[in-house]
Simulated scan of single mutants.
Amino acid sequence: MAHATLTHPDIDVAGEATVADYVALLKPRVMSLVIFTALVGMAIAPTGLHPVLAGISLLAIAVGAGASAALNMWWDADIDAVMTRTRNRPVPTGRVQPEAALAFGMALSVGSVLTLGLTANWLAAGLLAFTIWFYAHFYTVVLKRRTAQNIVIGGASGALPPVIGWAAMTGSLAVPPLVLFTIIFLWTPPHFWALALLKNEDYTRAGVPMLPVVAGPTATRWQILLYAVVLVPAGISPWFLGFAGPAYLAVSVVAGAVFLAGAVNVLVRREGKAAARACGQLFGFSLIYLFLLFATLLGERIAGLV
């Protein structure tokens, strides 16, 4: 990957980076979701590693996710500088120089993949390497600035951690982790498009062709509802496929109904504060929805109910 130097007038190139700035490059909130979903992928696997090796493997997956985030921030610094949501990130503010962010991301990428390969197996390491490349290059460089389907296609990278977790434990692939991949993959567009509706002016100013910018708010609202309709049965499917119990069935049905109601609310409420509130509520609940599903899967395994 090659990238032009930053030219935005608000960037201060004289700042000094702190440890907190480098932690921010890892997108710790996103990393926490990666850690959690990868952990569930590990927990539902029929075989396992020694707890110490499993812990190191989980850490390697988390670091790999952070590495791709750092590379994303390096490439997208020009966009981040003009968006209110991202303009205080370390690279656009000048606290971390672009070359340092690039070196940091590349070092963590190589280190995390090698660590996972040596600790668990090379299938898991290969999947982690693919995930880093997919997010840092294919999504960030190729898709994000070219197509309104950037989130749809790029969402595959965020959906892979449970597959990597399963592969780390078993050295193979199977239906359960692929189902979890599908759930996250279908969840990603409505989750991000709800936010994009709220931040439409930001994306327009930055020239990022998010769906609300390209197709308009109405088409985006219908797409959110369409994905929600498909997501809800996918979210229930682990019970039908036999790797989730009755507690998961109850949680997935209730949470799915709330998610679907939130998508309908976004479609119906299209003006003013009511529209913004509906989008904000769906965005917030979408995080709760995914957490509830994966936490219930994990809880059932710990309790020996499945």
Rank of each mutant, 00 (worst) to 15 (best):
A129F: 12
A69K: 00
M73I: 05
V63R: 00
P92D: 10
T147V: 09
A103C: 01
Y139E: 09
G117W: 01
A129V: 12
R85C: 10
G66L: 04
W122M: 12
R87S: 14
P90C: 12
F134P: 00
T140Q: 07
A62G: 14
M73R: 11
M106F: 07
Y139D: 07
H137F: 15
F134H: 13
G105Q: 00
G105I: 03
E99W: 14
L71T: 06
V142R: 11
A103Y: 05
M83R: 10
R95A: 14
L123H: 08
P98Y: 04
V91A: 05
N88P: 02
A148L: 09
N72C: 04
N72M: 01
L127N: 11
W75L: 15
N72R: 00
N121F: 06
A103S: 12
E99R: 13
G117T: 06
V141L: 12
L71H: 06
N88L: 14
R89H: 10
T140F: 08
W122Q: 10
A70E: 00
L127W: 07
H137Y: 15
G111E: 00
A70T: 00
S109R: 00
L127Y: 09
A101K: 00
G126D: 12
Y139L: 08
A100H: 12
W75T: 09
A70I: 01
R87K: 15
W74M: 09
W122T: 11
L116S: 09
M73L: 14
P90F: 07
R95P: 01
G111V: 08
A100Y: 00
H137K: 11
S112Y: 02
A100T: 03
A69C: 13
L71Q: 03
K144P: 06
W74H: 13
